[in-house]
Design a protein around this nucleic acid. Structure first.
Length: 597
RNA sequence: GGUCGGGUAGCUCAGCUGGAUAGAGCAACAGCCUUCUAAGCUGUGGGUCAUGGGUUCGAAUCCCAUCCUGAUCACCA
């Protein structure tokens, strides 16, 4: 039982006894007592003044007095305005600390056979260019969400949908075929995704030249775009692909393999992974079939030009195209097919899509369409929508070359971490491999934490310079604190001190220690809340609070040099559990914490 | 124009199921290394919580209106 539950229970009980009324759990509002006041936990009295028929002050006094007399854990109290501040006995806090320590997986719930299954789709790359900063936010959010759902007792399937077909894929294929001169990742030393991305850019450059030529010959811009030979060739290639043309398909397979190999490297570096991967090339036909079935059932309608539409005006939305007049599928069609296949493959209870907020409308529509098609899970699919990542200079535009490449960024973060460490002499005496490993954890930790601490819904500004700042609310600051705690524990061990599992209840705790135990004890509540609200940032900011508190404590009080053995042991036990909570919290964000740094 | 987000310190962000004097970090300034890791700690200055109304014992938080800003409303994905 957490401290909040315990206090809620005894307060409710006290009020029922005193005022002969029933009290619901929601009525008992608790908060951590503000620093300026005496006490640990504060009860808001206002909700009870009616039942008490007394002033808030009087009621507070009465309740406080009752608690102090009847509940051994309440040592003292004071009332300020409508707030009853309770001081909890040290013995209770020490017991709580002992209980936390006894739980190896404190805060985490394991999934059981009956646990609901949550499928989380994230990443969703296109196979015509490498991953960029926006994908990084997506990947980190998706992975973290998966960890959080797991930690709250769900079975989690992480999935990816690879957008591997369409005209954009043909563009890079065509450019490679025409201008590539047989280049391969091996021959160039380029990562496969970067090589393919290079040809996507080349296509665009050559295409622009052709458009300019046609315009110079007197064509209108729109016409020029359609008539440029490269575009016509790309479309022909797409048609061939759809007809399963042997050569085109072979080229497509080869280039996609290059890209997948490149993506794998990036994913691995980022520390994200997937339990199952779906490809649009394998699901779009299924979606088409489903739409045709819907058409037969008159859920949709066909226009004169043979295109198929869903009329969603009854749902307050527009009409939505599902099949083009030439019978080919659109994005929505593919998502219907993918969803269906997934639900055939897994007993999914909840589907979560981690996709940027520019697709809010798409998922609103998808939900309704799936529902219309008779999939009962359609209605409760959850679109985890996140905002754009902008740079201090402004928006990222691939055409203007302001895109931050994911691989470059990761390398840059690690290199900066390395440089800073070297400058401070932090990694002296480490082997090269150890030093690199710490730099890797710190550089990635900086990046991941910086992105995950921000509320996902918001557009955010990613400032590379600031993100690598090792002060303040940053990953490295948290990692550093963890490493320092571990260092203290190692020294205690060297001194032959065993850290006890329980502390003698006669010890008196100071304010900071109580505050820390209270914070540590909140972990399970915070994780649950993060899961309920789909909010990794909640965890990030909680861990930061704890770390900040600990750092102050660390500077104000000695641990190893404390003379009172009982207090020293208690502080070691407390430190050990704080390290445990930091590690747990950070692992939910996919951030590693080094033992030393 | 319709729909959906966002607007809190110079900057980046917490706080939002209503609670005490709105919090951190960065930047600026002033201190603290013979001390368990100074990638740290302490202090100072910095706010009409976009604006106006409403709900009530109490509003950054809930409701309404307005303004600013972003996304979206494609036979693109």
């Amino acid at each position: 039982m957490t401290i909040e539950q315990k206090i809620t229970e005894i307060v409710a009980n006290a009020i029922e006894k005193l005022y002969a009324t029933t009290v619901s759990v929601e009525q008992v509002q608790l908060q951590t007592t503000k620093k300026e006041f005496e006490g640990d936990i504060t009860v808001v009295i206002f909700p009870f003044v009616k039942a008490a028929r007394k002033s808030p002050e009087q009621a507070g006094e009465e309740i406080g007095k009752y608690l102090q007399e009847h509940e051994p854990i309440i040592e003292n109290f004071n009332v300020i305005k409508g707030f009853l501040n309770l001081s909890i006995s040290s013995a209770y806090w020490l017991e709580l600390l002992g209980n936390i320590n006894a739980e190896a997986n404190f805060g985490l719930k394991a999934a059981s056979e009956e646990s609901p299954m949550v499928m989380i789709e994230y990443s969703s790359p296109n196979t015509n260019k490498p991953l960029h900063l926006g994908h990084i936010r997506n990947n980190l959010l998706g992975f973290s969400l998966g960890e959080i759902m797991k930690a709250t007792g769900n079975k989690v399937v992480k999935t990816n949908i690879v957008n591997d077909r369409g005209i954009h894929i043909c563009k890079s294929m065509l450019a490679w075929q025409k201008f590539g001169e047989g280049e391969t990742p091996e021959s160039t030393g380029l990562k496969g995704d970067h090589l393919v991305g290079k040809y996507y850019v080349i296509f665009d450059q050559k295409y622009k030249v052709q458009i300019a030529e046609l315009i110079a010959q007197g064509q209108a811009e729109d016409a020029a775009k359609k008539n440029a030979p490269l575009m016509i060739e790309a479309q022909e290639m797409l048609l061939k692909w759809e007809k399963n043309d042997k050569d085109v398909v072979a080229l497509w397979k080869m280039m996609n393999q290059w890209v997948y190999a490149g993506f794998d490297v990036t994913y691995k570096k980022l520390g994200v992974d997937f339990d199952s991967i779906y490809y649009e090339s394998e699901t779009y036909l299924l979606g088409k079939k489903k739409v045709e079935e819907g058409l037969e059932q008159q859920l949709f309608y066909q226009r004169d030009d043979k295109s198929v539409w869903a009329d969603l005006t009854a749902d307050g939305l527009d009409e939505k195209l599902l099949l083009r007049s030439d019978g080919t599928s659109v994005y929505m069609t593919q998502d219907i097919g993918t969803a269906q296949l997934r639900f055939e493959n897994y007993p999914i209870d909840k589907m979560v899509y981690v996709v940027g907020n520019e697709q809010n409308y798409h998922f609103q529509v998808l939900s309704i369409l799936l529902d219309k098609l008779g999939f009962k899970w359609g209605k409760d699919l959850f679109h985890f929508s996140y905002g754009m990542v902008e740079l201090p200079e402004g928006k990222m535009k691939s055409r203007e070359g302001t895109v931050v490449d994911a691989d470059d960024l990761v390398e840059e973060m690690i290199a900066t971490a390395k440089a800073t460490s070297d400058e401070l002499g932090k990694l002296d005496g480490y082997t090269e491999e150890e030093a690199y490993n710490v730099s890797r954890m710190v550089g990635l930790g900086a990046l991941k934490y910086f992105i995950l601490k921000v509320d996902a819904r918001k557009n955010m500004t990613f400032n590379p310079a600031e993100s690598i700042d090792f002060n303040g609310n940053t990953g490295p600051f948290i990692q550093y604190t963890h490493a320092r705690i571990k260092s203290v524990l190692r020294k205690a061990n060297d001194l032959g001190m065993a850290i006890p599992t329980k502390i003698d209840a006669s010890i008196t705790l100071n304010e900071k220690e109580i505050g820390l135990i209270q914070l540590v004890g909140k972990l399970p509540t915070v994780i649950q809340q993060a899961a309920d609200e789909y909010s990794p940032s909640l965890i990030a900011n909680y861990v930061y609070d704890l770390v900040k508190e600990y750092n102050q404590f660390y500077h104000d009080y000695s641990i190893l040099k404390e003379e009172n053995v009982g207090i020293k042991e208690m502080r070691l036990l407390l430190s050990q559990n704080i390290a445990k909570v930091i590690k747990t919290g950070m692992s939910l964000l996919g951030v590693e914490v080094p033992e030393r740094m």
